[in-house]
């Protein structure tokens, strides 16, 4: 195939990945990797590099809005970035020596986990008490609800959340993804932070986390300009189109359909990884 044809196909695929990623809440990066590797036969290292670039673009693009509205907890984000960046550097270093089949299988498992997690019912819970460590670190905060009133929330289990964030960062460095699912588990289930705050803060953190592995990726040659250019542009516009639709509807059935589709892709990836085809 010529470079031009391939670029146009990738542009279209990346648009779809960004669109589905935004509707399903999984993020475009995690969907572009199976698309590039399984459907288009691109080497997984290039796919990971291109996914990382699109993660940074979507994070910086959308964090801008959330910071302004005061939902993102900047202190919480920066404190947890200590864990995610350490994890990301370790993950990126491991990815440079790990066999491709291991990366493919790990990616498939992460994809299944994230897809199932995206179907979980999200209940808003607010704890009022905070642990002493959380108070020392000034982690409890407030956020505006839909009546524009400020709601105060507390923070629990700082050490547990911090450790889980290290794992999230490592997955991000290993696979070039934002690992939003792991981050939300750390903040939501372990630290008991309200869902709205944990999602936006997770998004805010992704850019910095991804940056920690980007230098290693660049040095090892994961960043192929010819692939990154159509992918990052496609994912960003796809995500913007998806966000517009999300405002109008809550696509529950679509979400179920996408989760199913993603699980099929994931199984395919694990199968190919085990057979050494990736």
């Amino acid at each position: 195939m010529t470079v031009l044809t391939f670029t146009l196909i990738m542009l279209l695929g990346a648009f779809l990945a960004g669109f589905i990623g935004s509707l399903s809440g999984l993020g475009g990066g995690i969907i572009i990797i199976p698309l590039l590797t399984i459907l288009l036969g691109v080497d997984i290292h290039y796919a990971i590099g291109a996914a990382l670039v699109s993660v940074i673009a979507t994070s910086s693009g959308s964090a801008a809005a959330y910071v302004k509205e005061g939902i993102t907890n900047m202190r919480l984000g920066i404190f947890l970035e200590v864990a995610t960046t350490i994890g990301a550097v370790c993950g990126a270093l491991i990815s440079t020596i790990a066999p491709t089949s291991f990366i493919a299988v790990l990616f498939g498992l992460t994809l299944i986990f994230s897809a199932i997690n995206s179907l979980r019912k999200k209940e808003e819970h607010i704890v009022l008490q905070s642990t002493p460590l959380a108070t020392t670190l000034k982690l409890p905060g407030t956020y505006p609800n839909h009546h524009k009133e400020l709601v105060a929330y507390g923070t629990k289990n700082v050490i547990g959340g911090f450790s889980m964030m290290g794992v999230a960062g490592m997955m991000s460095g290993l696979l070039g993804i934002g690992s939003g699912a792991f981050k939300v588990i750390a903040m939501d289930n372990i630290m008991r932070i309200p869902f709205k705050v944990s999602t936006t803060t997770s998004n805010f953190m992704m850019g910095v986390t991804a940056m920690a592995s980007s230098v290693i990726y660049i040095q090892k040659g994961y960043i192929e300009p010819g692939i990154c250019m159509p992918v990052v542009i496609g994912v960003l516009f796809g995500a913007m189109a998806g966000a517009k639709i999300l405002v109008k509807t809550d696509p529950k059935k679509l979400r179920l359909f996408f989760a199913f589709l993603i699980i099929v892709l994931a199984i395919n990836m694990i199968y190919n990884g085990l057979n050494g085809k990736i």
Partner: peptide
Amino acid sequence: GSDLENYSVFKE
């Protein structure tokens, strides 16, 4: 644009 792509082989 008219070159042949070779993205399936990773050049470390």
